[in-house]
């Protein structure tokens, strides 16, 4: 931990692997990290597969580095539901930063989590925060409509869209479209970009009447960096708004509350699973199959037995 705090990338890399494993060791590490976080700004990037999230992140990293900031990137790709393996290819677009001592990039498999992040991603963000990175960018798996966990970790959520993926009806749907603080229409040199931008603006105007923050809609071409400066400006604008309105504190309070209940949940599960071997479980299963007991009274009993 000491080495990691001094910026030793080997140590940071190893600690991230600790955070990816459930259990005692992870909890101890999180305890150590907890008092050291809160300085970094967390940015979430989400959107469908192939809209250009990784390329956009690459350009944002370049821009922020130009301003002297240290940047951590957590890029999540899906794990196979069958083998548990993963093909993590996001950093392919960011490899020009691989040898920059001010940039740390970590790829993660989603490992069964369905919200667009991996379970450990928020912990990894904290570690990078503690290690002195100024901006932490979390890139979700290619999201569909309801992978909205990013909003629980990021201060600013950027939604990336491209033209040609459906009509206005898609914009009005609930879920991912509701969590954006900034909307980006990428590949804006493609046909339909103007129309999509206008439609987005119209719906945002309607939905956010009187709101203190109205999400801006920006056009970018990540491939050549067009519009990235405006995106960074919007990001800073949103950060300023969050700070001045007290919304940042509100969001962070909510996050901490959630973290506590999550930690409780994890610990309970750990303890009960530890106490329960396979044979015992099979016994319970038999009882339920024979109609002698039900799963809920068994759960009740297991939890009550803890005390």
């Amino acid at each position: 931990m000491e080495r990691a705090l001094k910026g030793d990338f080997v140590a940071i890399g190893k600690l991230i692997s600790v955070l990816e494993k459930e259990g005692e060791e992870r909890r101890e590490l999180l305890k150590e990290i907890a008092p050291l976080v809160g300085k970094a700004y967390y940015i979430g990037i989400t959107g469908a597969p192939g809209v250009g999230k990784s390329t956009l992140v690459d350009k944002m990293v370049g821009f922020l580095r130009g301003e002297g900031y240290k940047v951590g990137v957590i890029a999540i790709d899906p794990s196979s539901p069958f083998s548990g393996g993963a093909f993590l290819g996001d950093r392919l677009r960011m490899q020009r930063h691989a040898t920059d001592p001010g940039v740390f990039i970590r790829s993660m498999g989603s490992r069964g989590a369905l919200g667009g992040l991996s379970k450990a991603a928020p912990y990894v963000a904290k570690l990078l925060d503690a290690c002195g990175f100024d901006f932490i960018i979390l890139e979700t798996v290619g999201a569909g409509q309801s992978e909205v966990d990013i909003v629980k970790t990021a201060d600013t959520v950027i939604i990336v869209l491209v033209p040609g993926m459906g009509d206005e009806v898609q914009i009005i749907k609930a879920g991912i479209m509701e969590i954006g603080d900034i909307f980006v229409v990428n590949k804006s040199d493609k046909e339909g970009a103007q129309k999509l931008t206008r439609e987005l603006e119209t719906w945002i105007e309607l939905g956010y009447k009187g709101a203190s923050w109205v999400p801006p809609v920006l056009m970018t071409i990540a491939e050549n960096g067009t519009g990235v400066d405006k995106l960074i400006n919007a990001l800073k604008g949103h950060r300023k708004y969050l700070l001045e309105s007290g919304e940042l504190e509100k969001r962070r309070r909510k996050r901490i509350a959630e973290e506590i209940s999550k930690a409780v949940e994890d610990m309970l599960k750990e303890r009960i699973v530890k106490n329960l071997n396979k044979e015992q479980m099979n016994l319970y299963v038999d009882l339920v199959l024979n109609g002698k007991r039900d799963p809920y009274s068994i759960a009740e009993e297991l939890v009550n037995n803890l005390y």
Partner: peptide
């Protein structure tokens, strides 16, 4: 390897040894 349950980090073409080793470190 993915199908065998392994997490594969893929960097693509034209990597320098420095990039490869730095990536291996960050990705542990």
């Amino acid at each position: 390897l993915r199908d065998a349950g392994i997490e594969v980090i893929y960097t693509g073409l034209r990597q320098t040894p420095e990039q490869i080793v730095q990536t291996a470190i960050q990705e542990d």
